[in-house]
Simulated scan of single mutants.
Amino acid sequence: MSEYQYYEFQALDRPLSREEQEQLRAISTRARITATSFTNTYNWGDLSGNPRRMVEHYFDAHLYVTNWGTHRLMLRLPKQTLDLPTVRPYCLDHHVDAWTTRTHLLLDLTSEDEGGDWIEGADDSLAALIGVRDELATGDLRPLYLAWLSALAAWELEDDDEEEYQTCPEPPVPAGLGELTAPQHALADFLRVDADLLAVAAQASPAAPEEPLRPTKKELAPLIAALPQQEKDALLLRLALGPEPRLRTDLLHRLRGMTAPIAAPGDRSAAHLLDAAHTLRTEPRQRAEQERTEARGRRLTALAHDAEALWQQVRAHIATKKTSAYDQAVTLLTELRDAYTHTGRDKDFRQRLASLREDNQRRPGLIHRLDSHGLR
């Protein structure tokens, strides 16, 4: 399979100017560039520009996918919608990174899986993921927690230092982890979040609050009147300088104090979450194995109870002198051996088997089959 890299960038809050599009064209002559996007696929070579710098200067979102297992999502948000102190507890190793420019906060979320299956021709795009940016901008921290879980699972594979896991604290746990939105489900899939790890994390996450109703004029009027004059002037200035697509959302967020799912302080360690996920993952297999063991025990007890009838069947099969009947006799003897062992009567079985071999020592085909199955 040839090399495959897919780059997609999206400008959401404002379109790119013609000058900016020309600057981007200098980075790639093959890319598809519009006032709101930059996309390119590489089967050899690489993008000459630095994706981080491109997001800092031009774009609000970036998706990167390769056929050797790299999944990367970068998001740029205005500082007033999400601050670095809020994000920092979710940063882990190189898989979740955040930094700021003068005006924006940037997130870099990465998942690596070199052994994963690659689906050639898969529909890789930002469309399914872009909604998490708006969710983060309105205070929903579930996307950050999902990214932390993805990084935690990757960290476990890369580093086996148990002490580090014990001392690594869980970041604040947002409400609603048990009821993700569609973009959050897409993000969890993209970052390969372990389902068992997510299920364990969701145990400490309360239900998400209901969506607020559309505000009415009667509700908003007194809230606007109560805004400080300086804040009103700043909002009007932003409106006059527009277009600013997020202005209405920011204003409603300020007026109604709308907050997305509240994040409670995390009180579990990374080791606790990983161990609990392992238990959750293995319990069904252990339970199934126990059920199979118990069922086999009941079956062997029943066989031991009917042992005389089975010995008669064995002798009847042998008496036919047919090779297929010898095989059936050996199968029955194997089951009888296990049944006698299960009921603590090994000595009885060995005595009866010795007698059977003695009676049929001139049947080499049968003796050979008994020897090959350990029936000596």
Rank of each mutant, 00 (worst) to 15 (best):
V96D: 04
G131F: 02
L129S: 08
A98W: 03
A151V: 06
I119L: 13
R88Q: 15
P78F: 04
D60F: 01
W99M: 08
L157V: 07
C168W: 12
E158F: 00
H95G: 03
I130D: 08
A151T: 07
H62Y: 15
L152F: 10
R142W: 06
P172R: 02
A127T: 11
L63Y: 04
A137E: 10
W148C: 06
G116Y: 02
Q166A: 15
H71F: 04
D83Q: 15
T103W: 08
D160N: 13
G121I: 07
T103K: 10
Y90W: 11
H104P: 00
D83K: 12
P171F: 02
Y64L: 14
A182W: 00
T181W: 08
E158S: 13
E164S: 08
A122D: 04
A122M: 05
L107T: 05
H95S: 12
R88P: 01
L146I: 05
D108P: 03
G69Q: 09
L149M: 03
L146E: 03
D123P: 01
N67I: 05
I119T: 13
W118E: 09
W148S: 05
L136I: 11
V65E: 06
N67T: 04
L126D: 02
A98M: 07
A151G: 14
A137P: 00
P171Q: 07
L144D: 09
G131M: 06
T138G: 09
V96G: 05
D83Y: 00
G115V: 01
L77I: 12
T103Q: 12
E162W: 07
R133S: 14
T181G: 10
T167Y: 12
D93W: 14
R88S: 12
V173A: 06
Q166N: 09
R76G: 03
Y165F: 15
L126N: 01
D117A: 14
T167C: 00
L152N: 03
E164Y: 10
T103C: 01
G139W: 05
A98L: 06
C91P: 11
E163W: 11
H62K: 03
G131R: 02
L141S: 07
V87G: 02
L136K: 04
V132E: 02
V96A: 11
D140V: 06
L92H: 11
A122Y: 00
P171M: 03
E114D: 13
L180Y: 12
V173K: 03
A128W: 01
E114W: 13
E120I: 01
D124Y: 11
L157E: 15
A147L: 05
V96Q: 10
L152Q: 04
R76I: 04
T101Y: 07
D134V: 09
W155H: 14
T103D: 15
H71G: 04
N67Q: 10
D97T: 14
D134H: 14
V87Q: 02
T66E: 11
L180N: 07
L149I: 03
G139E: 06
D134M: 09
P169T: 10
E114Q: 14
E114V: 12
W118I: 07
D159L: 10
L149N: 02
T167M: 10
H95T: 06
T70H: 13
L141M: 10
T86C: 09
L77F: 07
W68K: 14
G69A: 10
D113W: 14
W68L: 13
L157R: 15
D124M: 02
W155I: 00
